[in-house]
Structure formats: C-alpha cells, structure tokens
Computed example of a mutant assay.
Amino acid sequence: MTAPLPLPESFALRLRGYDREQVDERIDELLAEIRWLSTDRDAAVAEAENLARQLERARTEHAELRARTDRLCRTPADPAAVGDRVRHLLDLAHAEADGIVATARERAAAIVREAEAAADRRTADARAQAGRIVGDARRRAARLAEIERRTADRLRQIDAVLADAESRLAEQAPLRAVA
C-alpha cells in the first residue's frame, strides 16, 4: 500500500474563492487513489478466497488418502494359508505398515494444520488490509468534505464582505466637485 497523497495546506485564492481547476485536480487525484486502494483490497480478498479453496482441496485429498490407506490396511493376507515364517514376516510387515500409516497421518495432519494457519493468517492480513484501505478512504473523504465545508464558509464570508462593501458604497453620498 502506498503512502497517502499529501493534502495541500490551502488552495490558491482567486477572485471570489479558490482556483476551481486546482481543487478539481486534487479531488481527481484522491478519487484515483481511492480506486487504486479498492482494487488492491479486492485483490487481497481474492487471494484469501483462493487460499481457502486450496485448503479445501487439500482437506479433500487428505480424506481420500486416509480412506485409501485404511482400506489397504484392513485387507490383510489370510494367515491360515501361509507358513510360520511367512506369518512372522506378515506380522512384521503389518507392524511396519502401521508405523508408516501413523507417520503419514501425523505428517498429513501437520500439513493441514500449516495450511489452515497460513490461510487464516492470509485471510486476517487481507481483512486487516481491507479495513485499513476502507478507513483511509473514509478519512480522506472526511477531509475532502471538511475542505469543501471550509471553502463554502470562506466563500460565504467573502460574499458577505463584498455585499457589505457594496452597500456602504451605495449609501455614501456622491462626492461633489468643489467649485
């Protein structure tokens, strides 16, 4: 996010108020920055949604792999059909397979936890950034409204001074030439 554009201390005064072109140019600059900030916020929200979809796909894949592993582990060889030595080897293989399955489940759970944490962090970051962007835009809009209010107040004051000066000039008796 870029630093906000600095607001001028005041606008150049012209007859009966501020230079309209200068004020309009400044408002256009601020509106362009608000549009840019909104686009940046929308991109961050889209990224968070993309990460949420990736996490959901990872969860689905994890569930499918777990079901497949469970299915493979539940169909052991028939121990009655093999000799003692093969039975012993099958028992060792089952024990090793159980260890591998347990390790794979632990790794899968760790990957899911990491993905969830990353998605939560990115979602929180995107929401925080969106909140900052909206807050900045609101503050800038409030500043513009305040500038507009002050400008209108000054214009009313100038109009009042001019009206007062015109009425005083009208009330004064015309000067007579001294002969």
Rank of each mutant, 00 (worst) to 15 (best):
R26L: 14
R132D: 14
V86K: 15
R143C: 10
R71L: 15
D19F: 04
D159Q: 02
F11M: 03
E49D: 14
R156M: 11
T39K: 08
A95I: 02
A118I: 06
D98E: 06
R149L: 05
E29Q: 12
A12P: 15
L162G: 02
A163P: 06
Q22W: 03
E47F: 00
S167P: 05
D42K: 00
R87P: 08
R74W: 07
A80M: 08
A179P: 14
I147M: 03
A52D: 15
A110G: 14
L162M: 07
R107T: 12
E114D: 12
A165Y: 01
R143V: 07
I100M: 06
D40K: 06
T151P: 01
R107L: 10
A32E: 13
R35C: 00
A44Q: 08
D78G: 06
R14D: 15
T69G: 07
R107A: 13
R154A: 05
I158G: 10
R121C: 04
E106Q: 09
S167V: 03
R168S: 12
V86P: 10
R149T: 10
A124F: 02
T103N: 14
A119H: 04
P79H: 02
R35T: 05
L15K: 03
L31Y: 08
W36Q: 12
A177K: 07
S10W: 13
H62V: 10
A97I: 00
R140A: 05
G99A: 00
A81H: 11
S167L: 05
A173F: 03
E29K: 10
A177T: 11
A44T: 04
A177Q: 10
L5A: 15
E116K: 02
E171D: 12
T2Y: 09
R127S: 13
R87I: 05
L37N: 10
L65T: 07
T2M: 07
E148I: 00
L55Y: 13
A130P: 10
P174D: 06
R59N: 14
R59V: 09
G135E: 06
R26C: 14
A32F: 03
L72S: 04
R139S: 13
P79S: 02
A165N: 11
E171Y: 04
R26P: 07
T60M: 13
L15P: 07
V23R: 13
R149S: 06
Q172P: 04
G99S: 00
A93R: 14
F11A: 09
L65S: 12
I27L: 12
